[in-house]
């Protein structure tokens, strides 16, 4: 098995809200991603999944914890070393309307990355590289002189992907890259991401709330709830035999486009809403909505334990559902 490209150890990110209140968005999370692998990160809104991605890129500075990229500590790097690492780590954002500067042509949006890292020597070379990137993501070279408003959502997301690829990264954080797109366009972008991964040996952290898409694209999947990692497994195993009651509920909540399956499916419907991350429940964060909760759950946070080879879950009663 190849060495992990990414290692995240006990990552924490807290936001100070004033008046002595802090929001623990990411609470002590550890995972690793091997080279060429896709790790899916799922959870509902407010669970901290996007904060994980943004903290890895240092769009937010971490409160504590470690992020090793090819063995080098990202959070202890600065200056030229950090700049070099930024080339290796890129991001694709959720909203293709908000993530492109409306006043820059596509050429300049993509070219900015090339300029910052001084990757091209002449204007002609810059232009050629940008045109090559546009064709790589399925756009036409003559699109380069247009502005973002001239493109549809799916096309804009392709531009966002071209921009991330411009600096030849090794690792890309994809933060809900398809959730703003129409269903028929989603498959186009998912297939493009898969092709690029095969062709360029990319490693992805794929953040999404759509479990069907995450299952499709990921090798392994991590499930987050209220800032904590509650389950981590191979995607086939996670979907076939989930151990954590939250994962079970999440999976059974997804509607399947087949009326016969829908008619007989038994749903685990969890009651209530997500508790506040400012004042999370004691012990296990899921215990307030969990059908299996016992006294021990409010007393102790269950650790993330390997229950089967490669299948981790943080639950006192893992596998009981």
């Amino acid at each position: 098995m190849s060495e992990p490209l990414i290692e995240v150890n006990q990552l924490r990110k807290e936001f100070y809200l004033g008046k002595g209140r802090t929001l623990k968005a990411v609470n002590d999370i550890s995972f690793s991603i091997r080279k060429g692998e896709t790790l899916g990160l799922v959870g509902e809104s407010g669970c901290g999944k996007s904060t994980v991605g943004r903290t890895m890129l240092r769009l937010y500075e971490p409160t504590s914890g470690q992020f090793l990229f090819e063995g080098k500590d990202v959070y202890r790097s600065s200056g030229a070393r950090m700049k070099a690492m930024r080339r290796d780590i890129q991001m694709i954002f959720q909203d293709p309307y908000a993530s492109l500067n409306p006043r820059l042509t596509i050429m300049d949006s993509i070219g900015e990355a090339l300029d910052v890292h001084k990757l091209t020597k002449s204007r002609a070379e810059r232009r050629a590289r940008i045109e090559e990137l546009l064709e790589l993501v399925g756009l036409r070279a003559d699109h380069a002189n247009r502005y973002p408003h001239e493109f549809s959502g799916g096309q804009r997301q392709r531009i966002g992907i071209a921009r991330a690829l411009a600096v030849k990264p090794k690792f890309i954080v994809c933060d809900e890259p398809i959730s703003a797109l129409d269903v028929s366009i989603q498959a186009q972008v998912v297939n493009l991401l898969k092709e690029l991964q095969r062709g360029m040996g990319l490693t992805y952290l794929f953040i999404a709330h759509d479990l069907s898409v995450v299952k499709y694209i990921s090798d392994r999947v991590a499930v987050m709830y209220l800032g904590k990692l509650v389950e981590l497994a191979d995607s086939e195993n996670l979907y076939a035999s989930p151990l954590h009651p939250y994962t079970c509920a999440l999976l059974s909540a997804v509607p399947i486009p087949d009326p016969e399956i829908e008619a007989i499916k038994e749903r685990v419907i969890i009651k209530g809403d997500l508790p506040s991350a400012i004042n999370p429940p004691s012990g296990c964060p899921f215990r307030t909505r969990c059908p299996l909760a016992q006294e021990v759950c409010s007393a102790e946070m269950p650790p993330l334990v390997e229950h089967r080879p490669g299948h981790f879950a943080a639950c006192h009663f893992a596998g009981a559902m």
Binding site: Q186, A187, V190, L211, S212, E236, L251
Partner: peptide, 11 residues
């Protein structure tokens, strides 16, 4: 129907 991955389909 074919362009959406299904949770119960094989990878």
């Amino acid at each position: 129907l074919k362009s959406v991955p299904r949770l119960d389909s094989r990878k």
